[in-house]
Computed example of a mutant assay.
Amino acid sequence: MVAAAQNRTQLIEVAMDLLTAHGPDAVTTRAVAAAAGLQPPAIYRLFGDKDGLLDAVAEHAYAAYAGHKAVDHGADPLEDFRTGWDLHIGFGLANPAVYALVVDPRRTSTSPATRAGREVLLARIRRIAATGRLRVGEQLAADLTHAVGTGTILALIAEAPDRRNPALADTAYQALLNAILTEARTPPTNGATAAAAALRTAVPDLDVLSPAERRLLTEWLDRITTGPPSR
């Protein structure tokens, strides 16, 4: 068992090194096994096939990255949000081949590390909502942030490093803020959406309401911030 775990870790690390240095085409079962000093059948025993190995590489890479994304509850919510954005952009640009693997839709839907990263993002969004600055629902803001961030990184890594526009990430970030934030730091008197978004963050702590009442209130507040459900 110990040897199998060690071999698994070694194969993942070797595959990630090959992916980082030479791109996905270099990650063959033969090349990975040779670099790890093992026989190719070891990969099939531990991962099933090459795709299973790549799944493990993506999970390992994103788990290591997500471990540095903890929400800073002592920071201003917007500063913490910007820190998260910069970390995400930096990770993608520093690890383009790994990032392309991590955001592959075939892997993200089943990745525990991806889900953990999305929870961190949602926590950052929730802190902004609690200040009354969110103009849309929390989930929409998180989804939009994920979409803009992913699109920005993929656009940048598609270009040669010397051809990348250094202003793209900052411009995309400002456009994102314009889409999800109100202009004022406190909810305006007619800011029903911002007020609803702020109240939505407190619903889980409203012990005066029953669980059924909290679910109903959550549904109402979500309807205010995102509109009625599509029919």
Rank of each mutant, 00 (worst) to 15 (best):
E138I: 03
G67A: 15
E138K: 06
R107C: 04
K50Q: 14
V120D: 08
H73W: 09
P112C: 05
V32H: 03
H68G: 11
A66R: 06
E138N: 08
A66F: 01
D80A: 14
N95V: 00
A34I: 00
G48I: 05
A34E: 15
P41W: 13
V98E: 11
L87I: 00
R30Q: 14
D80P: 00
A34S: 14
V57D: 07
P105L: 10
E119I: 08
A34K: 13
P41C: 09
D55W: 07
R133Q: 15
W85E: 10
G92V: 06
A64K: 12
W85Q: 05
L87K: 06
V148M: 12
V32E: 04
P105A: 07
E59G: 06
R107A: 03
G132N: 04
L122C: 05
G48H: 07
P112G: 06
L46N: 05
L93W: 04
G132M: 04
A155H: 11
L93R: 05
I153Q: 05
L78N: 07
G90I: 13
A66K: 00
D55A: 09
L54R: 02
L134N: 02
T114V: 14
A26K: 04
V136Q: 02
V71A: 14
A94V: 00
A58F: 02
V57W: 01
S109I: 10
A141I: 05
A70G: 07
R124W: 02
I153A: 06
V148W: 07
S109G: 12
V32W: 02
I128V: 15
G92K: 02
G67T: 03
L101I: 00
G67H: 08
E59V: 07
R135S: 15
A147N: 03
H73Y: 10
A130I: 10
P96N: 04
K69L: 15
V71M: 09
A141S: 08
V102W: 03
V120G: 03
A147G: 13
E59L: 01
G67N: 08
D104V: 05
A26N: 02
V136N: 02
R115Y: 04
G90E: 05
A116T: 12
H60A: 15
A36H: 10
G52F: 09
T145P: 02
A61C: 08
T152Y: 06
R135V: 01
A142E: 08
A34C: 02
F91G: 01
V103F: 03
V102L: 04
P112N: 08
T28L: 08
A64C: 02
R127Q: 10
G132V: 09
G74W: 03
P41A: 13
F47P: 00
G92F: 03
D143G: 14
H88L: 12
P105C: 09
H146T: 11
K69V: 09
G84E: 09
P105W: 09
A75S: 12
L140E: 13
G84M: 12
A142N: 06
R82A: 14
I125E: 01
T131E: 15
L46Q: 09
N95Y: 11
